[in-house]
Nucleic acid binder design. Structure first.
Lengths: 330, 330
DNA sequence: TTGTACGCGTTATCAT
DNA sequence: ATGATAACGCGTACAA
């Protein structure tokens, strides 16, 4: 800036004024400064601005496993909601198992982000989040943390799983298997509970063997389906409720390998409504998780938080998407 | 830091020394300082560090359309290659059409990133990139820019498309249709050229009508397939080479809707080897783009650039993945 | 309207 | 080994 000021024959403060569009500046000098800025391709240093202003105009985003389409969609929502605005996102990658999440959050804080959007893994305690929330504006995605529930963007997995299972029952299915996520993960537990509850409420018996634990990856879906298939003689199930679409995809392939037709012999129901769910053969009936919308909502809310406006996160629509992977047995 | 210094009874410089692990500091005072740091949950301000040091320890990553699994994978590679290191990535989202890409790059530069990893869209000129490369260390993904080709991570799409088409021919296919990407996109053109060249080299005639232009999205694959199918009476093609897996997925569904079996009646060949390609029914034969590895490579190379080490980007393996979507007609 | 001077949080260069 | 002090690039209160 000194350089600019020198070349334009003004003081550094004037350059600053021009940069920030202050009204109190002579149009002539204004033009001169602009000209020099153009020539030197000058761009203000955001870090320095942050130093004096106390704000960095960045929002820290913690995300896990970009491999999962779900997180990618959330991220996309955050990204598009933020583009064009004054704040830019800075990402940090966590991980499910260890405290990589905490490390990543610390990284973000060291960078003095003005706010945080978190998709915390199981390793992050609720207390930690509540504590953190007192220090910095933050939004939690995918978990309802009591105490800061107004800053949480989440969906009621159990209720959705209940609806999905009920749907299968209404279609005439009486023996329904389930492929769960890793049960160390709250989402997996919730979805399983919804499944159990629906069975119970409709007077169907719960068969523990008919629940195969996976870990949300395609590979585990493959294994779980094989396990289930081996039990088919004892428990002739006609449908499988799978805890996410990724596993449903590999389950479907496993069935194909065994020459079992879907949905005629075995029906499949997924969870998430990932992009490819609608292109499966047959198109997969599933629960639509509004991943993109969750990202947008999180970003918009964090912006309101920053602007000290009141926030109000609406209940997210969890939609049952009926396609062609479930047979009507009635 | 002043606060820490005061409470620990030392000078602010000493606190700085402790923070940076300088050897010349009394163990006793060291401990005292550490203690206060713990209590106050103090975290150094990276921006301020960047100000004095001239380095921000961040790498700017420009990416487009997070919706595409390909970019998501690249990003994942970049992310994991960077975690644990001294540099963190900061993302900016570009777009294909307008100069959102340029805006995004400017954003990154304002933030004084130490280096850039770019996946530039068609709107970004080569000259611009060459110019940019003189100002800041950078790596370009997915394009070979003459002049800075050593800083480019890319694959030879045309050669891969040639191989794919040749593979179909070797399997006995004589009339092969093609669904291309949008031809304003270099990748789409390259893939199409590989297809044309393979046809020509094997003495097969090129039928312009048998090329349906899509835009890499699922929806366009649907449309393109319908277009092709309408031509089937005139040109009884037995295979379709599709320019990416996303369109291949919707092409496959379209075929399913028409009751056309794959690969018995029509064979399908994709491009990318996205995760779900192996879970399609039947599993899709495709060209594997090492997206994740490209991300890792880009990150590692940019780190070497930053460390002023010599760089050497190896030729990336483009692998033909043979699965079950192509019939052997011989 | 414009310029001077200070401060933001940190590192680095000096003395001490 | 340690403490002042300058400097990094910018915004701004204050004075002119």
């Amino acid at each position: 800036m000194h350089e600019i000021a020198r070349l334009a024959g003004v003081s550094q403060s004037t350059v600053s004024r021009v940069l920030n569009g202050k009204p109190t500046v002579d149009p002539e000098k204004q033009a001169a400064v602009m000209k020099v800025i153009e020539e030197l391709k000058f761009r203000p240093n955001v870090a320095a601005r942050g130093l004096v202003g106390g704000k960095t105009m960045t929002i820290g985003v913690l995300t896990r496993s970009l491999g999962s389409p779900f997180f990618a969609q959330v991220l996309r929502g955050v990204g598009t909601a933020l583009t064009g605005g004054d704040y830019s996102p800075i990402m940090a990658l966590g991980a499910d198992d260890d405290d990589a999440d905490i490390d990543a959050i610390n990284l973000l804080i060291e960078r003095r982000v003005d706010a945080l959007i978190l998709q915390p893994g199981p390793a992050v305690q609720n207390d930690y989040l509540i504590d953190l929330a007192t220090e910095i504006p933050l939004i939690v995605i995918g978990r309802c943390v009591t105490g800061i529930e107004k800053q949480c963007v989440y969906v009621r997995d159990a209720a959705a799983a209940y609806r999905a299972t009920t749907y299968l029952i209404e279609k005439g299915h009486r023996i329904i298997a389930h492929i769960s996520g890793m049960l160390s993960h709250p989402d997996a537990v919730e979805r399983q509970e919804g499944y159990f509850r629906a069975l119970r409420d409709h007077g169907l018996s719960i068969v523990p063997e008919l629940v195969a634990e996976g870990d949300f990856t395609e590979h585990s879906g493959f294994l779980a389906t094989e396990t289930l298939l081996a039990l088919r003689a004892r428990y002739p199930f006609t449908a499988i409720f799978v805890a996410n679409d990724q596993m449903a995809a590999s389950a479907r392939l496993t069935l194909y390998r065994h020459g079992i037709s879907v949905p005629e012999t075995i029906s499949l129901f997924g969870f998430d409504d990932q992009t490819n769910a609608q292109f499966m053969i047959p198109p997969l009936s599933t629960i639509r998780q509004p991943a993109y919308e969750m990202g947008v909502l999180a970003a918009q809310t964090v912006l309101r938080l920053l602007a000290r406006k009141p926030i109000q996160i609406p209940d997210l629509e969890l939609e049952l998407v009926e396609r062609e992977s479930v047979a009507d047995l009635r």
